[in-house]
């Protein structure tokens, strides 16, 4: 490792810790969100330095990109609710609600002790020689793909990836179940497009993004890339199209959207079950079928992930005004009884 490399690593690490500390300490929400995105981008650099380009891609697209966009979107909703220039605890946290200082002190002391202990143990501990990386490298040819990370994600530990999609679907169902106001992001289809810059950007960026996403899915079996990175890129294109009013915003009410959200998971499970009579084990691809099946699953997942991400971004629940009728619903547990009775008082 060169001195220059060490210097770079040291500055990346310092920057990471400084950004994290600052964003957790600041009292201004907007500043915190901007710092969060910078933190994510710095982290991508760290992943590259640690020899993990797959993760660097995902971090930039999902960690910094989508998550940052989710926060900004939510911020936007709150800012609209408050109105321009007004001060509000929603956006400026004065810390008055934070726990008492004895709690902070106790927790802080405990956390510092734990950190010192863990750091000491991790640096000093003797290690068993690693066997798994060699084992994975040796058996990678049997997986049907050449990118070892894709091999782990879709063959060795395909079950985890399937459940990971289930996490996305669960979050999606949860967000759909939340009530939302009538205001939606983006405009209705057919509405005249007032923003020429946005329109031009869309015309240019969307085809490029879609081609790149297809390439990333396809190349994922040999090079860094794969369904998640491609899906988040595709989601970027979807968001642009929605914001520009070219695509209608997806909703839970739209049947194709629901089919696409659940389709990746359903296809993955059905593929796993289909091989069961042939090989006896769930997701145990028959010989010679691993590569085409993995490619097919990845393609399905790319679409599913893209739709879920667009939907999570575009369909942020608006902040409705407090609804007195809702508050009168029996808060102690059974909303239905009261809702069905028309919300009379007890």
């Amino acid at each position: 490792m060169t001195a220059l490399g060490l210097l770079l690593d040291a500055s990346v690490v310092l920057l990471l810790v400084a950004l994290a500390t600052r964003l957790l300490l600041t009292r201004h929400l907007f500043e915190a969100i901007v710092l969060f995105v910078s933190y994510g981008l710095t982290l991508s650099l760290a992943w590259v330095r640690l020899g993990a380009p797959n993760i660097a891609l995902a971090e930039a697209a999902l960690g910094a990109g989508v998550t940052g966009a989710l926060f900004l979107n939510t911020y936007q909703r709150l800012a609209e609710r408050i109105g321009d220039g007004a001060k509000s605890p929603l956006l400026e946290d004065d810390g008055s609600q934070d726990p008492p200082s004895w709690f902070k002190g106790l927790l802080g002391g405990g956390v510092i002790l734990l950190g010192l202990g863990a750091g000491w143990a991790l640096i000093g501990a003797g290690r068993r020689p690693a066997f798994l990386p060699h084992e994975i490298a040796a058996r990678l040819p049997e997986t049907g793909v050449q990118n070892p990370v894709t091999g782990v994600l879709l063959n060795f530990r395909g079950y985890d990836t399937l459940l990971e999609i289930a996490v996305l679907v669960a979050a999606m169902a949860g967000v759909w179940s939340l009530d939302r106001g009538s205001r939606r992001f983006g405009r209705a289809r057919g509405e005249p497009d007032e923003d020429p810059v946005l329109h031009a950007l869309t015309r240019f960026a969307v085809p490029v993004t879609v081609v790149t996403a297809v390439y990333l899915t396809w190349v994922g079996s040999t090079e860094p890339g794969g369904a998640f990175q491609a899906g988040s890129l595709l989601a970027g294109a979807g968001v642009l199209l929605t914001v520009a009013g070219i695509l209608p915003p997806p909703t839970a009410a739209s049947r194709p959207v629901r089919a696409m959200v659940a389709g990746g998971m359903a296809g993955f499970v059905l593929a796993g079950i289909a091989v069961l009579p042939l090989t006896g084990q769930f997701l145990h691809y028959p010989e010679g079928w691993a590569y085409p099946m993995i490619l097919g699953i990845e393609a399905l997942l790319t679409v599913s992930i893209a739709v879920v991400l667009v939907e999570l971004f575009v369909d942020v629940p608006a902040v409705p005004e407090p609804d007195p009728a809702l508050e009168s619903i029996d808060p102690s547990g059974d909303p239905l009884g009261r809702a069905l009775r028309g919300g009379e008082d007890s």
Binding site: R139, Q281, H284
Partner: peptide, 9 residues
């Protein structure tokens, strides 16, 4: 053995 591999792979 999901995927036919078994632990630790």
């Amino acid at each position: 053995l999901l995927g036919g591999w078994g632990q630790p792979l």
